[in-house]
Amino acid sequence: MDKKFLYYLIKRVLLAIVTIFLVITITFFFMHLIPGDPFQSEKAIPEPVREALMEKYGFNDPLWKQYLTYLGNAVTLDFGMSMRMDGREVTDVIFEGFASSAKIGFIAAALALVMGMVFGAIAALYHNKFIDRVIMVVSTAFVAMPSFIVGTLLLWIFCAELEWLPANGMESGGLILPIIALALYPMAYTIRLTRSSMLDVLGQDYIRTAKAKGVHPSKVLFKHALKNAVTPVITYAGPMIAFILTGSLVVERIFTVPGLGDHFFSSIQNRDYTMIMGTTIFLATIIVIMMLISDVLYKFVDPRVDLS
């Protein structure tokens, strides 16, 4: 590892810490701007109970003081207790959910990238031929369809009508459909990215030179072309993997996967402040890490990239 690279890494890590600090600050104050609090429901709780809870969670302190307390605890990795789910530590809830989400997310992301690049390359290779058209139509459809439609369709076809697969993520084989539902969109997107960037690369002089020198077509495609065409895919893959690993509200609800996705949504709806902060910080951290990894990957794929 050269010195320049080490210097670059340190700079990026420091930048990441600043980013997460900004995310904490902005989320904390914006979150308190929304009307409501964690202790409300259709049936209002008695006023003295409410007061007792406000005191317990320090809501009677001025906001800046609550912010500093939170920041102080967050530095020591203490993210507090959930305000809605009694007796549960935010970190426990997040890690338990993340374990489920990451399991299917990892497979889905790998599936999306591999299949996406393969089909993208094939489409580029057979540019404007029938197979290219088919791949493009299908991938356009999957890019355009929101996950709740894809998920519900899969559920309806394979679970309710054909009864081939269980609708419940807890049963054996139950994770197949959520993985497919999660993978379809990023796969379709990767196909389109790979195809257009491949088309670009395939038109370059050095490809023609390689072909003219009699290099085997598959070697031209995978060694010379795909390696250079992969840069935009890497850019996309970083945040995509981060989002897919942290779970999808829709897919997890539809297929009963006890993942993290639901907590992003329900914590906001419940004004579960500690949970909102926890999930946001967690997502931000994963995104920052994935971005860092993809930036470093550029360097390996394309030595011309100057990291400094």
Binding site: L155, C159, T256
Partner: peptide
């Protein structure tokens, strides 16, 4: 007692005999 609050998912699970 599986935890599930999506009406469509619940219904699909009931139809398939899971629940």
């Amino acid at each position: 007692w599986p935890f599930n609050e999506d009406d469509n998912a619940l219904y699909a699970n009931f139809q398939s005999g899971s629940y």
